[in-house]
Amino acid sequence: MAQIGYSEKVMEHFMNPRNVGTIENPDGYGKVGNPVCGDVMEMFISVEDDTISDIKFRTFGCGSAIATSSMVTELAKGKHIDEAMEITRKDVADELDGLPPRKMHCSNLAADALHGAIEDYKSKKVGK
């Protein structure tokens, strides 16, 4: 049967998003999207021994944009940065029991924001 609307998991993450907020002086920061398209996500990470010890997000976008952001923070927390870099958009969607087809692209930028934050951390580390 074709999927109608959002999965229960998407709605659950939309209603109770994990890890909402910001981190002061984060080790890495990533931001993707733009308000014209209707999706902006920012991701803050704290890193200890190349492992993501804390992660927070803020998102402007539709229900699935919030759910994917929340899910990606759950997936990344506690992971080594190399492992976290391998989290794909598809992983996030799968973990949420799927997204409606037309939402696959625009609202599923959360993995990109995470990767951006990790890249930011890596570039700062090189600079130190």
Binding site: P17, V20, K31, V40, M41, E42, R58, T59, F60, I66
Partner: peptide, 12 residues
């Protein structure tokens, strides 16, 4: 309440 909650989530 809806507006307040959603504004807490937004980066803008």
């Amino acid at each position: 309440e809806t507006v307040q909650r959603l504004r807490m989530l937004t980066p803008m």
